[in-house]
Design a protein around this nucleic acid. Structure first.
Lengths: 116, 116
DNA sequence: TCTTTCTGCTACTGAAAACGTAGCAATGAG
DNA sequence: CTCATTGCTACGTTTTCAGTAGCAGAAAGA
């Protein structure tokens, strides 16, 4: 064995361009990976989504990438897979999403300011 | 052809996996690009940063990518380049950053919950 | 003027990540 | 057994990123 390539960035672990592993840096690294924000967004509902439902919700993202991202989110305790139900956010992940929801409002006024 | 590839996603423009161009989707697409969140973060100070200073702040990100991301952020009215000063957030970009700052607190408790 | 030192980049090559499609093993229903 | 659905893995192609080199313009000094 040995170790497969480490994938999910965790607090305390150095990330690209920052050797400190400061939590906020690690979070920035994680959220900056393609599809991570989108997955969080699509998991905002109350009911879990199956792998394939989630894949479809993300516009047909390839299963390999989706699986990799879900692994990241599971390793970092943000999402989880519930047997017989599907993927859902953990309580911690739910709190993160709550912090991100205000972006919707900002995005709206952003759109308006750009269309002028 | 003629058109260079368009780069910055703007509200109203379809993005990967979502044809609607809904502002929040576009924002998710933009923030999900590598280095975008980090750049916002590094521009949180009051004084503008030069291209090179920003590059260093981002841990030596390659100039080609940095330039591409700055172009994205400028096209979308989030950052701007001020002559004789450097790169800084626009008022709109500053508001976006304000929405993101609470992530710091979340990241701290996230880190704690993981190290146990 | 001729360097030197900043500036904001562009160009290029190679590596890594993502895409897109196919398909497999496991489970459950009929 | 067949068929559908589940969560994926494999793999070849395309896109993106990384890493290094270097250029042109402005300013400053000798």
């Amino acid at each position: 064995m040995s170790e497969k390539k480490r994938k999910a960035p965790k607090p305390g672990t150095p990330v690209r361009g920052s050797s400190t592993g400061r939590p906020v840096m690690v979070l920035i690294e994680l959220l900056g990976r393609r599809w991570v924000l989108r997955i969080l967004w699509e998991l905002r509902g109350e009911t879990p989504l199956t792998f394939r439902a989630l894949q479809e919700a993300c516009g047909g993202v390839s299963p390999s990438v989706l699986n990799a991202r879900l692994a990241d989110l599971r390793e970092t305790g943000i999402a989880e897979h519930r047997d017989e139900e599907g993927y859902a956010l953990t309580p911690m992940g739910r709190e993160l999403l709550d912090k991100l929801m205000p972006l919707t409002g900002w995005a709206e006024s952003w759109a308006q300011s750009l269309e002028k």
